[in-house]
Design a protein around this nucleic acid. Structure first.
Lengths: 135, 135
DNA sequence: ACTAGCTTTTACATTTTTTTTACAACTTGT
DNA sequence: ACAAGTTGTAAAAAAAATGTAAAAGCTAGT
């Protein structure tokens, strides 16, 4: 709460980001840094969690590789290494230990997190249409 | 109690902390500065007790290294020394003399005290989810 | 000033996480 | 089907964080 008579710089007002993400298989507590799949707590490293958090926070939206790299690794980071992919892989594997795949690859662009719905027969992620993204 | 007409910064209002902590193996009297494990009184130094108290007072929550260092050692304190770890070690050892481990390491962040439950087969602390820091 | 007990430092060992590398497999446009 | 570009994978290397033992430094009480 902001005390009477005091002001706060716009920039410091925290974004109204949701505190947690939740669907039929996954629950993420962005604040406490915890994630549960089908009730099982995921053991994630920092980078893995950041990745999951960024993707889930933009569920349904494509997050370009560049954006992920810039936000998670900072401005530098050579494109020629497979660092991002390796982290995606490890994250996917940990999620699939208890649940269904929810991170799809958008060829040539980046990754997209898809909300899981129990009623759907299956998430068909086999291939994904390419999407143009605003620069 | 805050006198009428006065204000107090949110941060300085003391939390309504309980006088003692208690679970199936450990009992801590924050006021008297005593701790019992399975009925055995622990012989703790001041720093060790402060550490245990801070962690137990936040049971289930991760307490970052920085917070522990700031609160127990004051603002200064070089990050390059192993002081905190050494105290954690000695505290853990004393607790385990009579009981089960209850202080887990959260890699890259800090430590977390976990309430002991007699019904649980075992506390599996092997590894722990990491916490991401909100950008 | 001396001692006993507590605290901090130091120097490594160990563990965990992150990055790199080399190559395989896959997409897409032609 | 081919070529070019992109992503997936496994394993190893590198980096970062934590654990440990021993010694040195402090401090309160005498």
């Amino acid at each position: 709460m902001i005390p009477k008579g005091e002001t706060m710089a716009i920039e410091t007002i925290p974004a109204p980001m949701k505190q947690l993400y939740r669907d039929d298989q996954l629950e993420i507590d962005f604040v406490r840094g915890q994630a549960l799949v089908q009730g099982n707590q995921l053991v994630l490293t920092r980078k893995e969690f950041e990745l999951l958090a960024m993707l889930a926070a933009n569920e349904g939206e494509i997050v370009p590789r560049e954006v992920l790299m810039k936000r998670i690794w900072g401005y530098s980071m050579e494109i020629r290494t497979r660092t991002l992919d390796v982290h995606v892989r490890r994250l996917r594997r940990k999620i699939m230990e208890f649940g269904q795949p929810c991170i799809e690859t958008v060829f040539g662009v980046g990754y997209r997190f898809q909300r899981y719905r129990a009623d759907r027969q299956r998430q068909s992620f086999s291939s994904v249409a390419c999407v143009a993204v605003p620069a």
